[in-house]
């Protein structure tokens, strides 16, 4: 069994390389089919012909397509993603600046989503076809069905404007902006490091609502998968064995059946974490959250393709990375794959 691991890893690496290549081709193609003229976007509408031609050549647009692709790959491999037209900064630098806000939000959300979804999924499986199962199923389908940008607005309307329980838009109150030195760009960490507990409280107050909404919508998926994994396990003979040994129902469920789905859950949670990035694009717009999603959409609207394609590439890379991590965890934690 041990001998199979090496070719497995080689196969895995090969698959990742192919996916990466595909990712590059895809972003390249999307970048090329756009109707907006990339030269015009840089030089502006009333540039002279010479200036235009100059930039045209600088961008390599006079070369054959395969050469352009070659240059694109070379740029990507050397981490040169060009400059954003809007901010005038290197795109990569921009993304590094906005990504922590999104990661903070997504992490907060996945903690809520998994913390809610896993126990509910187990409860639904254990009570299959009885009322808790039905209630949980409807609740999770609701989470799956809600347009998150809309729920976000309604929640703002109720909990911020109406009840005043939480902070409104942004990562913290306007009042505190600039008070905390930016070390990691994770506001919760930065403010705690600086001992600025007012800022920390304000940050928690602001993150709780968008994170809960994102968490709820991702818990829908987690609940459903937990339920179906759990049902598979509860029908297994070893569950009967555990009961015969004299373990209580609860211990059997949590120690034995749940123990067997932990590994699968890791994959599910990793996938859910990835798709939180998607929800983040919409929720960041609603909550004026200065993160990756907002950066992406604002560049989309002005047609800054350099920035957009890099964002897409980054998301693709994050997804590949998450898949890889969950695969590795699978290998580490499941004795059958060792």
């Amino acid at each position: 069994m041990r001998r199979r691991v090496i070719p497995d890893i080689a196969g895995q690496a090969g698959a990742i390389l192919v996916t990466l290549a595909g990712l590059l081709i895809l972003t390249f193609v999307i970048g090329r089919i756009m109707p907006t003229d990339p030269v015009r976007a840089i030089v502006g509408e009333d540039a002279t012909r010479e200036v235009y031609e100059n930039v045209y050549r600088q961008l390599g647009l006079d070369r054959p397509v395969w050469q352009q692709f070659f240059f694109y790959v070379r740029d990507v491999l050397t981490f040169d993603f060009g400059t954003s037209i809007r901010t005038g900064q290197p795109v990569l630098q921009d993304i590094a600046r906005v990504l922590p806000a999104t990661v903070e939000l997504a992490t907060f959300a996945i903690v809520i989503g998994a913390g809610l979804g896993i126990p509910l999924g187990v409860a639904a499986a254990v009570n299959k076809d009885r009322w808790p199962d039905h209630v949980i199923r409807i609740a999770s389908l609701m989470g799956h069905s809600m347009p998150i940008f809309w729920t976000g607005m309604i929640a703002l309307l109720i909990f911020y404007a109406g009840l005043g329980w939480v902070g409104g838009s942004g990562r913290m109150s306007q009042f505190y902006i600039g008070l905390v030195p930016e070390r990691t760009n994770f506001l919760l960490i930065d403010s705690a490091l600086a001992g600025q507990w007012d800022v920390f409280r304000s940050a928690v107050n602001h993150i709780i609502l968008p994170a809960s909404l994102l968490g709820y919508s991702s818990s829908a998926y987690i609940t459903r998968m937990t339920r179906s994994f759990m049902l598979d396990q509860l029908n297994q003979e070893y569950v009967t064995t555990a009961r015969v040994k004299g373990l209580s129902r609860n211990k059997t469920i949590w120690r034995h059946a749940f123990g067997n789905i932990k590994v699968q859950l890791v994959t599910i949670v990793a996938l859910a974490y990835g798709s939180l990035l998607e929800g983040a694009v919409l929720i960041e717009t609603v909550f004026a959250w200065p993160g990756f999603g907002q950066y992406l959409t604002s560049n989309l609207l002005i047609g800054d393709m350099n920035a957009v394609m890099t964002c897409v590439l980054v998301v693709g890379l994050i997804f590949i990375g998450l898949n890889l991590i969950s695969d590795i965890l699978y290998r580490v934690f499941d004795p059958r794959t060792r």
């Binding site: 003979e237 067997n260 590994v263």
Partner: peptide
């Protein structure tokens, strides 16, 4: 129980 392939917990 009948079949140890199924009646033993695979991850312990």
């Amino acid at each position: 129980l009948q079949d140890p392939k199924f009646s033993l917990n695979p991850i312990e």
